[in-house]
C-alpha cells in the first residue's frame, strides 16, 4: 500500500483526495494546509493526519508519495523538500514559473532517485486521448492543423486570488492553455515558434484572455484559445479540431453532454441547466492511478518532469511573445 500525503487542500487537493479513495494501491495518510479546517475536511475522507506545515508532512514518516497541489509559485519549495526526503513526487501543473526553477526541480528528483510526475491531466481525458490515438492512426491523414479552445469564467476559487497575479500563476498562457500546449506537443511533436496576444498585465480585475498561434517543427500549425473572460458562473468549455491531409476531427465539450440537469429550487424558479459529461472513471483518478502504478512498479510516468518542462517552454515563449509583440522561437533560450 502506497501512502500519499497531499500538500494543499484547495480545489486540486480535494479532487486528488477523492481520487485516491478509488485507487486500491494507495491510501491518503496525510494532508497539509495552512488552513487547518481545509486540511481536516480532506483528511476526514480517510482518517489521514493533518498538518498546517507541508514540511512537517514531508518529515512525518507517514508518506511515501508527496502530492504537491499548491499554487504554482509554491511548487518548487515543496518539490525540492520532498525529493530531498526521498519521497516520490506528484506535482500539479504547471511545473514552475521559470525554466531554471523547473530544471532544479527535475534535477532534485533525478538525484534523489524518486519518481516525478506533473499533472498534465488532459492526457488522461478520454476524449483527448482518443483524438490523439486516432490522429496517430491516420484518421485524418497526416495531422497538420489544430485548433484548441479552453476556458470560461475566471478561477476565483484560488487561495488569496493567486490566479489573478501573473507573478504567482503565470496568467492563462502558463496556467490554463499549457494543458493544450502539452497535449498538442504529444500529438504534433516539438514546437518551433509561437506568436501570442493576451490581456495579462492590463489590470482588468479577475479577467484574462489569450490567443496563440503555434508553429511546430514539422510545419504543422495550431491556434490555441484560452479564456478567463466569461462572467462568473459561465460554464467551462473545451474544443478541439485536428485537420490533416485526409480529413478533420472536431470535438466540442458543449455538445458532448451525457446528462443535463434542470432543477427547480425555491430561490431560483428559473433554474440553470447544468450539463454534465459523466464518466465511470474520472480523468484525475486515471492520472493518479497511473502515477501510483509507476511508483509501485518503477515504470516511467507518462508526464515526466522533462515532458512538463518542454510544455512550460512553449507557455513561457507564448507569454514572452505576448509581452514583446514578436514571434518567439521556443528553444531560443535553451
Amino acid at each position: 500500500m502506497i501512502r500519499v500525503g497531499i500538500i494543499g487542500a484547495g480545489l486540486m487537493g480535494r479532487v486528488h483526495a477523492a481520487a485516491y479513495t478509488h485507487i486500491p494501491d494507495s491510501v491518503l495518510t496525510a494532508v497539509a494546509d495552512i488552513r487547518p479546517e481545509a486540511a481536516s475536511a480532506l483528511a476526514a475522507l480517510s482518517g489521514a493526519a493533518v498538518y498546517t506545515d507541508g514540511h512537517e508532512l514531508i518529515r512525518s514518516g507517514k508518506v511515501d508519495v508527496v502530492d504537491v497541489a499548491l499554487p504554482t509559485y509554491l511548487h518548487k519549495e515543496y518539490v525540492l523538500a520532498a525529493a530531498a526526503a526521498g519521497k516520490h513526487v506528484f506535482c500539479e501543473k504547471p511545473l514552475a514559473l521559470s525554466l531554471p526553477d523547473a530544471r532544479e526541480m527535475i534535477a532534485a528528483c533525478d538525484q534523489a532517485g524518486v519518481k516525478f510526475m506533473v499533472g498534465h491531466v488532459v492526457r488522461f481525458f478520454p476524449e483527448y486521448a482518443k483524438l490523439r490515438q486516432l490522429a496517430k492512426a491516420g484518421e485524418v491523414g497526416t495531422p497538420k492543423f489544430a485548433r484548441t479552445s479552453r476556458g470560461g469564467a475566471f478561477p476565483a476559487h484560488g487561495w488569496q486570488n493567486w490566479f489573478a497575479d501573473p507573478a504567482k500563476s503565470g496568467g492563462p498562457l502558463v496556467d490554463l492553455v499549457i494543458h493544450d500546449f502539452d497535449w498538442l506537443r504529444w500529438v504534433f511533436g516539438p514546437v518551433a515558434r509561437v506568436f501570442a496576444k493576451s490581456l495579462t498585465g492590463r489590470q482588468l480585475p479577475n479577467m484574462d484572455y489569450c490567443l496563440t498561434t503555434v508553429r511546430f517543427a514539422s510545419g504543422a500549425l495550431a491556434h490555441v484559445e484560452g479564456s478567463w473572460a466569461a462572467p462568473a458562473g459561465a460554464p467551462f468549455l473545451t474544443a478541439v479540431e485536428i485537420g490533416g491531409t485526409g480529413g478533420l476531427m472536431e470535438y466540442r465539450s458543449q455538445q458532448a453532454v451525457g446528462l443535463r440537469k434542470t432543477v427547480k429550487t425555491p430561490d431560483h424558479p428559473i433554474a440553470n441547466a447544468v450539463p454534465e459529461s459523466p464518466l465511470q472513471e474520472d480523468p484525475y483518478m486515471l492520472e493518479l492511478r497511473h502515477f501510483i502504478h509507476c511508483v509501485a512498479t518503477g515504470a516511467q510516468p507518462l508526464v515526466t518532469g522533462q515532458e512538463a518542462l518542454e510544455s512550460l517552454k512553449v507557455a513561457l515563449a507564448a507569454a514572452e511573445s505576448a509581452r514583446t509583440g514578436l514571434p518567439v522561437e521556443v528553444n531560443a533560450h535553451g
Partner: peptide, 25 residues
C-alpha cells in the same frame, strides 16, 4: 494597426496556402 500571420500549404497538394492564422492588433 498591425498584422502577423503564419500560413502554409499543409492540407492539399496545391502549392498555395490552405492554412492561415492571422493575428491583428
Amino acid at each position: 494597426t498591425e498584422v502577423y500571420a503564419e500560413m502554409d500549404c499543409l492540407l492539399h497538394p496545391i502549392g498555395v496556402d490552405d492554412v492561415g492564422m492571422l493575428t491583428v492588433s
